[in-house]
């Protein structure tokens, strides 16, 4: 197996506003199984960061444990990274964000890391609305330990060993909407035309952005009977496409009324949504819940930007933290001295 990617690139590779090519956002060659959906997600993150012209050194990748959590090695080789404890990525991300609020945080997790061991941390991360993008590479099985059913495996889905799953799966997207996440999306690793703009929008969103990505496990969950195989997923997708137009770019495409909706984000960029039906409203939690549930009842997987509150207050605003990263604060600001302490004490007398 090759662990080296040749250095040669296409001579006409396009560059972004920073003068970088997409290759500048590459990581190491993946050691995941050939054909793993997670590799497609890695590529989508790479492409999204390139397209949005983010500076690699201003991005931090954080993950837990699992196949999914190996992913950050395979994209953005020139960014910061932290491979943390199983299910504990939210704590590390919170700590990092508190220390340096100016970086773009990309958390990568899996169905085990989020829906099982990390569920407690995940829920509280949503509740706090930490400004980060949280991507779950969801394959419905524990690929790293030979494919046992995970907490997101669908009821009745047949494992590679031949057993039908007796439990209902946890739908992380529904859970995130219900719990008050300010940005909830769902996508499929094999649909980059949707996944890339979704990731770009998530990164531009100020607040907690959650994306549940169906990502087939090519080794343990890509057989007949599995509900998360490439072909089953493709057969049951209800795709709501979206376009992401950054603030600096002119909006060129014309959109028909009714089935499309435009949302302006905090930083001035615009998301154009193509809705499944005219009554669907992505800024209405009930409507989103209803649409996701209806699709599920019909055996369909609704993908796209499911819910968005563009004006949410993130953790820093909510608890009024310092407006600059800690590493930019001087000694006097961090430790104002006994005079200030005395004045605080006086104020409490």
């Amino acid at each position: 197996m090759s662990y080296i990617k040749p250095k040669f690139r296409h001579p006409n590779l396009p560059t972004n506003r920073l003068g970088y090519t997409v290759a500048d956002y590459d990581g190491a060659v993946s050691t995941l199984c050939a054909g793993c959906g997670h590799d497609s997600i890695s590529a989508a993150i790479r492409n999204a960061c390139f397209a949005s012209a983010l500076e690699p050194h201003r991005i931090a990748k954080i993950s837990g444990i699992g196949c999914s959590s190996k992913m950050p090695t395979y994209f953005l080789g020139k960014s910061h990274g932290f491979n943390s404890v199983h299910g504990r990525m939210p704590s590390v991300a919170t700590g990092a964000s508190l220390a340096n609020r100016d970086l773009t945080y990309v958390g990568v997790s899996g169905d085990g890391d989020t829906a099982s061991i990390g569920m407690g941390q995940f829920i509280h991360l949503i509740r706090r609305n930490l400004n980060m993008t949280y991507i779950v590479a969801n394959n419905g099985c524990y690929g790293l330990t030979k494919g046992q059913d995970s907490a997101t495996a669908d009821l009745g889905s047949v494992s590679k060993a031949g057993d039908a799953n007796p439990f209902d799966g946890i739908d992380l997207a529904s859970l995130a909407i219900l719990q008050g996440a300010s940005f909830v999306g769902r996508s499929f690793s094999g649909d980059k035309t949707q996944l890339e703009p979704l990731i770009r929008a998530a990164m531009a969103h100020k607040g907690f952005a959650f994306i549940d990505v169906v990502s087939p496990c090519v080794t343990f969950n890509n057989h007949a009977g599995s509900t998360k195989s490439y072909s089953e997923t493709r057969d049951h997708l209800d795709v709501m496409p979206l376009d992401f137009v950054p603030m600096r770019e002119e909006i060129r495409t014309q959109y028909a009324e009714g089935t499309t909706q435009s949302v302006t984000l905090h930083d001035g960029s615009v998301i154009h949504l193509h809705k499944a039906d005219t009554s669907y409203r992505s800024d209405d939690r009930k409507s989103a819940m209803h649409a996701v549930q209806t699709a599920e009842d019909e055996g369909r997987i609704l993908t796209g930007l499911l819910y968005l509150d563009p004006d949410s207050q993130d953790l820093h605003q909510n608890i009024q933290l310092a407006s600059r990263p800690l590493n930019e604060l001087g000694k006097d600001e961090l430790c104002p001295g006994s005079k200030v302490l005395n004045s605080i004490n006086e104020g409490l007398r």
Binding site: H10, A43, Y230
Partner: peptide, 15 residues
Amino acid sequence: CIECDACTDICPTSC
């Protein structure tokens, strides 16, 4: 082909 995109993602010269 199952259209997993693995080839297009890895190709060093974007062919």
